[in-house]
Design a protein around this nucleic acid. Structure first.
Lengths: 243, 243
DNA sequence: ACCTGAACACCGTTCAAGT
DNA sequence: ACCTGAACACCGTTCAAGT
């Protein structure tokens, strides 16, 4: 996954005045960039106006000069990350199979969201603040366009892919290792759960008993891909029927 | 959708002592029930320990006798709602088509989550606190079991359906009318967006131009069903191949 | 065994005052 | 035009004190 992060950390530039006192100087880019850095390093709970201000080397109040509040900050942070997804899928529309291309974009999108559980909740909330989200929507859609489905089916197909990506990513991403939690402790908790599920009554829980060993060894990314491929198989079927 | 809510609002029972002073008396059921009522009436932001205590007619501290904190309260609230989904899908395993039955359960699940955007984030977070979530998972799984897929495919199929349901529901449910916002104002904002999208450059945004009129008239539930049917079509295909 | 509510350590947001 | 930081109105959580 391509990270969008300025090469030079956007430090607050202390403008030294003749005499002595310093004032920090920011920019929207610096505010949003540091917010994403804070989120990536320490998770959603760590993004505080006080913590962000400290990182920027200034006061809390100055952040409000650039964003109207925390909602807008997170909306912009979300779009900032999406710029990386767009960059990573720049040439993804090249293959002869539109569904394959759709898949590549969906995977890049998934990778960005699953390591950032907060992203899904703010994706495409405010179109004005999130031009990259609109571009990503359009890029997913352009692959579907090549299937020559009617508008209604085209709209539904892209909505379905986005819903699946965000839902699965948020679901898998909220596990401790994705946030700042201890992976070892998480692994132990998962083993405990598997052990208890192995001992469930097969009469009452035939399904869990049927899949528990798969659950024990599953990998999140494979689980995501398997479901995505079911969805895309359904889409292919629909496209073939229409053709 | 079937609501699980006690017929008699679980008022705090003031235990009158001879002499005069009263003390509220709660129960886990009352605490969780009132939490869900508060969430349903006024949204996630309204669920405050102070507001909940006032509703229960007691002090803030007493809530901590029943739950360890806000996370556990929301996990239990989530499971409380899921009891309704289970009740509503009690006889859903009766048809001759397992995928149809899977669909019925998924729809009931979707209805519960889309009107409660907070639910998805807490679904199946803590298996010990959420027996109904496990039962719902098992019930979805039992339909898949009838397709006689290998464990790995079975596991992936149920994971995919759950991911899609939660993702789409959270996405659609965060629109203002689902929370406590003004539906009229929301409608106006949507009209504005549609108008701006109609004027986008067709060279740069061919997909959005292709679907904008569908977007303008779309209904959330139909959008959900269309995507679900794509996923289920893929699942059917997989089951047929294996047979 | 269970309830109370003041107190604590945080939040996001505002705003008069600065430069 | 932009930055500052004290102040405000909230939070979730704790805990000594009650019954």
């Amino acid at each position: 996954m391509t990270e969008i992060r300025p090469e030079t950390r956007p430090e607050a530039r202390p403008t030294t005045r003749s005499g002595g006192r310093q004032r920090a100087s920011h920019s929207l880019e610096a505010v949003v960039g540091e917010a994403v850095a804070l989120l990536d390093e320490a998770g959603e709970a760590a993004l505080t106006f006080r913590a962000l201000a400290a990182r920027l080397g200034g006061g809390v109040g100055s952040i409000y000069w650039y964003v109207s509040g925390k909602d807008e900050l997170l909306a912009r942070a979300s779009d900032h990350v999406l710029a990386g997804v767009l960059a990573a899928t720049e040439g993804a529309a090249g293959s002869s199979d539109p569904v394959d291309d759709l898949r590549v974009i969906a995977v890049a999108f998934f990778e960005a969201v699953s390591s950032r559980p907060w992203l899904g909740a703010y994706f495409l909330r405010d179109v004005d603040l999130q031009p990259n989200a609109v571009l990503l929507y359009e890029r997913l859609g352009q692959q579907v366009l090549r299937l020559h489905l009617p508008p209604r089916e085209s709209f539904h197909a892209v909505s379905a892919v986005m819903g699946y990506v965000i839902g699965t990513a948020a679901d898998l991403g909220r596990r401790p290792e994705a946030a700042g939690g201890d992976p070892v402790e998480h692994e132990r908790g998962l083993d405990d759960l598997v052990q208890r599920w192995r001992e469930l009554d097969p009469g009452r829980f035939p399904f869990i008993r049927h899949v528990v060993e798969e659950f024990a060894v599953h990998r999140d990314d494979e689980q995501f891909l398997a479901g995505l491929d079911l969805l895309l198989a359904g889409l292919r079927l629909q496209a073939d029927r229409r053709a």
